[in-house]
Design a protein around this nucleic acid. Structure first.
Length: 822
RNA sequence: GCCGGAGUGGCGGAAUUGGUAGACGCGCUGGACUCAAAAUCCAGUCUGGCUCACACCAGGUGCCGGUUCGAGUCCGGCCUUCGGUACCA
């Protein structure tokens, strides 16, 4: 016999669709469960195995919850703006709108064939004015609260193409991916969202959500809170000053120079004429370096002096001012005080350029006269630090900050590595920024009533020069809404992470036209209960979404503090060790497998592959295992066609009245229910399925001789367990055994009979010196004395203890008995 | 570089979170069924030693060291590899 998956799967998919089984009744939030997968980027590579791996198992979890009685909402949509569609347009001339729509149509088709419980009535895409209008609205709200602003920021610039490049378009050697020209950093005025305003809350909020620890740690490190002081160094012979941020004000007496980031705005102002050439040359050389290169701790340090001198506020000492690339303009104040004696990078820099190294904190157990061979960065006793000498450096740290504050030379300060969110892109395929630049009035907001600022279709795509919107006369030229003067629209579009930072609100009613989302519904359904997506989003998308959620809360649009209560990361499916991507040409298309073995088998295979959060390298080896699993189950149910109709219903059995074989089956089905429930609830699909396979093995041994009542009992339960992981098969088997009610329209879950799980004996492992010598069957909960009697009657054990002194005996109830001998 | 993961048989992986390492599946080997093959079913399968065999013994979770009666699991130091690193999403 073979398994007619094609007919079965099509039949049930059609049935579910025709009967609107997937449609969620959003008015019923009594047992609501919002289960969301990160929406899909509609690339030309279509749906690949990685997507299937993300969506299939998550849908199985959602189906499990549905069977358990939850009202589950599973939406699907398209993250449709973005760079690749625009690059494709430049390359082929196909308009991003057209290619995106084509891709969406294909992907929608593939998604529908997966047989997931998506509520297609709420399908959504971000590249239409109905959606992106609300990105613009969001922009205006942020602007009005002072959380959207413009400032200069460096971008990757290709001098040949005269265009901005994404990091992805810069090759690893720092050249333009298209033309090979060395890419430089160029400052441009850019829009930012002030995520830093929420830094503290983004940090503390992590404690309130059920997210993977690794992700919380990543976000914590990304936000990078550090506590210290901002200290002012006055410049000699100048009214200018340099503010530095330091986490170690206790080392202030050890400052022997000050370093500015090469991009720091005051660099050229303070550089003395004789150093000017060197400084300009150095600034230029830094332009082509990435931040990763610059901050590398293994890279040889570089830098040049400016000729200027700063005055150390604590001791009045004159120290030289340098510039060096290891100082970043984007962190802190863009300048650091250098303490080579107590900072590793400063130590290396000072050694290289022969700058003085001074010891101001004494390492415990060393002498003041000992030479420093490396930076000492821990706590010790203060030396060479005037009135602080002899005190503990941790105490001195606090004291020095207080003293600086009193003298007006510095302040207590908390710094974050987190930077404001740069949202403007010099590109076409995104949300236009709703700002008009007027020569008289400056930045003017587009009125809310005038939204959306529509993205014009008719634009020219070219590799070189300004972005398509900047070149589009009809779009860019506009009258100032304030004064009527000729003005220009902002030519930039928004980062697509803006789209994805609030989409989960809109899913509940994507057609609403007078608000970004339907507050009556979102008040009931948001936050999302389960959010599933890749860990590559740990620090960007997942942080931006939390930020915007908190902003909406502050506008009074939601009551919750966090968008995603529980988060799970699916692992990455790689192919030959590399992430699947169209550009690498290693994308595995699932469609051929679906044609060969059906979606249930494919879904089972993906889930059975390994731990969901781990992923793995793609291989279809072993798919026959899940094929056999499906076939075995199908044949089993076929064998007992209509058994529910012909057998009286029994919900519980007295285990003492069963035969040995029946007892074994009854125990196993109940153990399986428990195990499967626990495992699938935690997204442990591989072990959940393994438990079903164990049940199969048991049934192939002992099922035949069971009573019809027990057979009916078992099959009725097995079909429900199959429901989440092989939904089409389960629906079919449910019908075969004679149930008139469909599974997913009439969700049901059977709890295990706990009486069947009670064991009265247990195998205790017996070890001698930690080595297993035998296992002994003992009555459950035996005392040490009871077990000891059995242990020392056991030849395999005594063989290893004879003639030796027993030093110790350890007994762990129902588990292990270890004898230590000498 | 920095931040966060991962490393267990021929392969994918399991292990109640410090307590019998290798569940479940693939593959392979042998057997049953068949004229034969496929499919299916049954049995075996970490490595080495010694045995006709059962048994028994030793070793074994990337590497080195430590804690413990006991370590895949905890601690210290490495190696390899993957993801992110703020304009791919």
């Amino acid at each position: 016999m073979s398994y007619p998956f094609y007919e079965i799967e099509n039949k049930w998919r059609k049935y579910w669709e025709d009967n609107k089984v997937y449609k969620t009744d959003l008015s019923d939030d009594e047992r609501k469960l919002y289960c969301l997968v990160m929406f899909i980027y509609p690339s030309g590579a279509k749906l690949h195995c990685g997507h299937w791996y993300n969506y299939g198992p998550t849908d199985s979890w959602a189906r499990y919850k549905k069977l358990k009685g939850f009202n589950v909402f599973e939406p699907m949509g398209y993250d449709a703006f973005g760079l690749p569609a625009e690059n494709y347009a430049i390359k082929t001339g196909v308009h991003p709108y057209d290619s995106t729509m084509t891709n969406i149509a294909d992907i929608r088709n593939q998604l529908k064939n997966m047989g997931c419980m998506y509520d297609w009535s709420t399908e959504m895409m971000t590249c239409v004015p109905e959606y992106y209008k609300w990105n613009q609205w969001l922009f205006l709200q942020l602007y009005k609260k002072g959380l959207a602003y413009r400032k200069n920021a460096p971008v990757n610039w290709c001098p040949k193409d005269q265009t901005v490049l994404a990091n992805e378009q810069v090759s690893s050697d720092g050249t333009c991916e298209r033309c090979g020209t060395v890419v430089i950093k160029k400052n441009m005025t850019q829009w930012f969202f002030k995520i830093t305003e929420y830094a503290e809350e983004l940090l503390s909020g992590l404690e309130t959500i059920n997210w993977p620890e690794e992700t919380k740690v990543k976000q914590t490190n990304w936000i990078g809170k550090s506590i210290g002081a901002e200290v002012t160094f006055k410049l000699e012979n100048s009214n200018k000053e340099i503010k530095v941020f330091t986490t170690r004000p206790d080392t202030l007496f050890g400052v022997t120079y000050v370093v500015l980031a090469p991009e720091n705005e005051i660099v050229l102002d303070i550089t003395t004429p004789e150093y000017r050439d060197g400084v300009v040359k150095y600034m230029d050389s830094v332009k082509s370096l990435s931040e990763i290169d610059r901050t590398s701790t293994v890279k040889e340090k570089t830098g040049v002096p400016t000729g200027a001198f700063a005055v150390n506020p604590v001791n009045g000492e004159k120290v030289p001012v340098w510039i060096a690339d290891y100082v970043l303009a984007t962190y802190g104040t863009g300048s650091v005080m250098a303490v080579p004696g107590h900072d590793e990078r400063d130590f290396l820099f000072a050694k290289k350029f022969n700058l003085p190294i001074r010891k101001v904190i004494l390492k415990p157990g060393t002498q003041e006269s000992d030479e420093l061979t490396e930076a000492f960065t821990e706590v010790g006793t203060m030396v060479n630090s005037a009135k602080y000498n002899g005190t503990n450096s941790a105490d001195a740290l606090e004291k020095i900050i207080k003293d600086l504050e009193v003298e007006g030379k510095g302040t207590h300060k908390i710094n974050y590595k987190l930077r404001d969110w740069l949202i403007s892109r010099q590109r076409y395929w995104g949300t236009p920024i709703p700002i008009i630049h007027c020569p008289k009035c400056g930045e003017v907001l587009v009125e809310e009533s005038q939204l959306p600022v529509e993205l014009p279709y008719d634009v020219e795509f070219s590799l070189k020069g300004e972005s398509p919107l900047a070149k589009n006369e009809k779009f860019i030229n506009v009258k100032c809404p304030n004064c009527g003067t000729d003005a220009k629209r902002d030519p930039d579009t928004m980062d697509t992470f803006v789209d994805s930072s609030w989409y989960y609100f809109r899913y509940l009613n994507p057609k609403i036209s007078d608000a970004p989302f339907d507050k009556a519904l979102t008040d009931k359904w948001v936050p999302v209960d389960m959010y599933v997506g890749g860990r590559e989003h740990a620090t960007m998308h997942l942080l931006y979404a939390r930020f915007i959620h908190k902003f909406f809360r502050d506008l009074g649009l939601t009551k919750s503090d966090e968008p995603f209560k529980t988060l799970i990361h699916q692992g990455t499916i790689t192919n030959q060790g590399a992430k699947m991507s169209k550009s690498k040409g290693n994308v595995v298309n699932p469609d051929t497998f679906i044609q060969d073995v059906g979606t249930d088998v494919f879904r089972l295979f993906l889930m059975f592959m390994g731990p969901y959060e781990m992923g793995g390298d793609w291989s279809d080896k072993g798919i026959s295992g899940t094929e056999r699993f499906v076939l075995r189950n199908y044949e089993l149910f076929k064998k007992y066609e209509n058994i529910l109709k012909n057998t009286s219903n029994k919900e519980k059995f007295n285990i003492d009245e069963l035969s040995e074989a029946e007892k074994s089956v009854y125990k196993k089905i109940n153990q399986t229910i428990k195990k499967f429930d626990e495992e699938i609830n935690q997204f442990k699909f591989n072990t959940a399925i393994a438990s079903l396979m164990e049940l199969n093995n048991e049934l192939s041994k002992n099922f035949e001789v069971c009573s019809d009542e027990l057979k009916a009992y078992t099959l009725k339960r097995l079909v429900v367990l199959l429901g989440p992981v092989a939904p089409h098969l389960a629906e079919e088997c449910n019908k075969i055994i004679g149930n008139d009610k469909t599974l997913f329209e009439n969700p049901v879950w059977y709890a295990q009979d706990d009486a069947a799980l009670i064991e009265n004996s247990v195998k205790v492992a017996v070890q001698v010196n930690g080595k297993l010598r035998d296992t002994i069957d003992c009555p459950i909960n035996s005392t040490q004395e009871e077990v000891k009697a059995l242990v020392f009657a056991n030849e395999r054990v005594t063989k290893h203890t004879e003639g030796k002194t027993i030093v110790k005996e350890i007994y762990v109830k129902n588990k292990i008995y270890n004898i230590v001998v000498k």
